[in-house]
Simulated assay, not measured.
Amino acid sequence: MDETSQKKLEQVEQSVRSHTKKRDRSASEERLLEAAEEVFAKLGFKGATTRMIADKAKVNESLIGRYFDGKMGLLISLIEKHVETEKYPMCELGYPPQATVRAELTKFIEAMYSKHCQKDKEFFKIVLSQSLTDPKFLKRLRNIIPKKMNPLLHERLLELQKKGKFAHDVDVDTYMQTLDTYFHGAMLFDKILMGAEEGEVDKMLHFVIDIYVRAVERP
């Protein structure tokens, strides 16, 4: 084998090793995130230890520090995962655009809050608790959570406004911010703090939707 062929072979082998290493790291990170979510949900953030999480994920405990910079980094990464993936889909709504404001907001509530927020109730408890007791965590959290309710919903309401289905004298941004404040309040206060049943929260959310729709919807 000449020198050129030898170099090419070494480059291929290096590429394979690099790909395998990245794949192994990705798999370890995913196992750690899944394990952390389960342990956090069961014991809370303070009660969970990196040893418990590593044992459940079946990886070396040192990888938590190497990949996530510790337990706090794991929780931050979990929140990012919730924001970026199907658990909190900001890049898609999962249903087609609706012809009216009422239909659009009703579908949005069913897709985003009634299903996803109910599913992730225990995780929200952990995030809320840590936010109230750890200023450093809260600061990092504010850099992660979406600043808008949902960009696609915003676009759809603007389109309905252009079509004359949404009052032209109402600012869509302010309208959505008001809705967002109530919806998150219902989730955090009524559902998590007060322990309201899922059906009760859903009923209140739809009641509020009815009021907000009457204020802006045009035939």
Score class of each variant (00 low, 15 high):
Lys42Tyr: 13
Pro151Leu: 06
Arg156Thr: 14
Lys81Arg: 15
Asn60Tyr: 07
Glu110Gly: 02
Glu155Tyr: 15
Val213Lys: 10
His168Val: 10
Val101Ser: 10
Arg218Tyr: 09
Ala57Val: 07
Thr181Pro: 00
Lys191Val: 01
Leu138Asp: 04
Tyr175Ser: 01
Phe189Trp: 03
Val170Pro: 02
Glu37Met: 15
Leu158Glu: 14
Leu160His: 13
Lys21His: 08
Glu198Ser: 05
Ala103Ile: 05
Lys87Ile: 06
Leu78Tyr: 07
Lys81Ser: 10
Asp171Asn: 13
Leu179Pro: 01
Tyr113Gln: 02
Pro135Met: 09
Ala111Glu: 14
Gly47Leu: 04
Asp180Met: 01
Gln161Ile: 06
Ile76Ser: 00
Gln98Asn: 00
Leu188Tyr: 07
Lys71Ser: 03
Lys162Val: 13
Thr50Val: 13
Asn60Phe: 02
Leu74His: 02
Phe183Val: 01
Tyr212Arg: 14
Gln98His: 02
Gly44Leu: 08
Glu110Tyr: 05
Ile53His: 13
Lys56Ser: 07
Glu61Phe: 05
Arg25His: 01
Glu13Trp: 00
Val101Lys: 09
Thr178Gly: 06
Phe207Gln: 15
Glu38Leu: 09
Cys91Tyr: 12
Gly185Phe: 04
Lys125Trp: 05
Lys163Gln: 13
Gln14Arg: 02
Asp210Pro: 04
Ile192Tyr: 04
Pro89Leu: 11
Lys115Pro: 01
Met112Arg: 10
Leu74Pro: 00
Leu132Arg: 14
Phe207Asp: 12
Ile192Gly: 05
Phe189Leu: 06
Glu34Val: 14
Val59Asp: 03
Lys147Arg: 12
Glu217Leu: 05
Asp210Gln: 13
Pro146Asn: 11
Pro89Gln: 09
Ser62Gly: 07
Cys91Thr: 15
Met194Ile: 00
Thr85Lys: 06
Asn143Tyr: 10
Leu157Gly: 03
